[in-house]
Amino acid sequence: MRTELSIVATPGRLPRIDAVGGLAGRHTGPDTVHLIGTAATPLGGDELDITIVVRAGARLVVRSVAATIALPGTDTVVSTAHWRFDIGEGAELDFDPEPTIVAGGAHHHVVTTVQIAPDARLRLRERVQVGRSGEDDGGWRGDLLAELGAVPLLRHRLQLGAGSSTDDRLSAARSLDSELVYPDHRPAWSGTVDEVRLPLAAGGSLATRTSSRLRALVPG
């Protein structure tokens, strides 16, 4: 199945939502949209193409009502998703959906491209868990490509799970919590050996945490 979703935020009006396939959006506030699954996706062979545009001066908050579960298909185990974000002059995007869970035997590949104006604001969070309870043979790959105006902001690729170059059933990470923030003037920070926030040369920061399991969120 192919899924196409477009969300366009414009100042002074509700975001426009156009959707075909297994993912839709619902207005839950004047500037807030929640992503909602309308069919079981992604399955192996599925393609997701999502575009989120925040026009100059607009603000958009994007959340989701539930986790996304990537499952193997009958003929192929690989599903793909392409997320495109375009944040205009003076605009703001806060993107923080529920995690993606890659079930055993499935492989999910994500390409995220970001175009952000130099005076815009962005928080882009991605959480991934490879394997449900008792599973560890799924795989995930994510490419994050960000441009600040005409200047490259970030080129980042990370792989988790089966098929990755660092895979180790005993100790390799099976989860990722990643957050791209712009602007961000905080200095570099490191918690545990697998948790770090690094400033980007053109501005902003990228924080990543890898581990065996995602941390449970604390209410409030």
Rank of each mutant, 00 (worst) to 15 (best):
R215A: 09
G57H: 01
A162G: 00
T32R: 13
A39Y: 08
S165V: 10
L144N: 04
Q115P: 01
I101E: 06
E98M: 15
V193Q: 12
S175W: 00
T74V: 13
W140K: 00
E195G: 01
P42T: 00
T51M: 05
V193F: 12
P118V: 04
Y182Q: 03
A172W: 06
V77M: 07
G45C: 05
R141H: 11
L124K: 01
A202D: 00
R2H: 14
G203T: 01
I69V: 15
I50M: 02
W140Y: 14
D49C: 01
H34C: 14
F85Y: 14
H27M: 11
L122I: 04
S205R: 04
V111P: 00
V102R: 01
A173F: 05
I101C: 07
L200V: 03
L217W: 09
L160H: 03
A188K: 06
H109K: 10
E98L: 14
A58T: 02
S164V: 04
R132P: 00
H185S: 14
V78E: 12
T112M: 10
R13I: 11
R121P: 00
G21H: 10
L153Q: 08
L124S: 03
S211G: 14
L206N: 02
G191L: 11
P15T: 03
D94Q: 06
T210V: 14
R125V: 04
Q159A: 15
I50T: 09
R121H: 15
L124N: 05
A58L: 07
T76S: 13
W189M: 13
W189C: 06
S164M: 04
L93E: 07
T3C: 04
S171G: 06
E98D: 15
R121V: 02
A201P: 02
T74E: 15
T28N: 08
D137Q: 10
G163F: 05
E89T: 13
E147S: 07
P30E: 10
V130C: 12
Y182K: 04
G142K: 00
T210D: 08
T166M: 06
A19D: 03
D184C: 11
R127Q: 15
D49A: 11
F85H: 03
D49L: 08
R26W: 08
L124W: 11
A66I: 00
A188M: 05
T10L: 13
T28G: 08
L60F: 10
P30T: 08
P118A: 05
L180Q: 04
S79H: 10
F95W: 15
A67I: 03
L158V: 10
F85E: 02
G21N: 02
V65K: 07
L176F: 10
P183E: 06
T74Q: 15
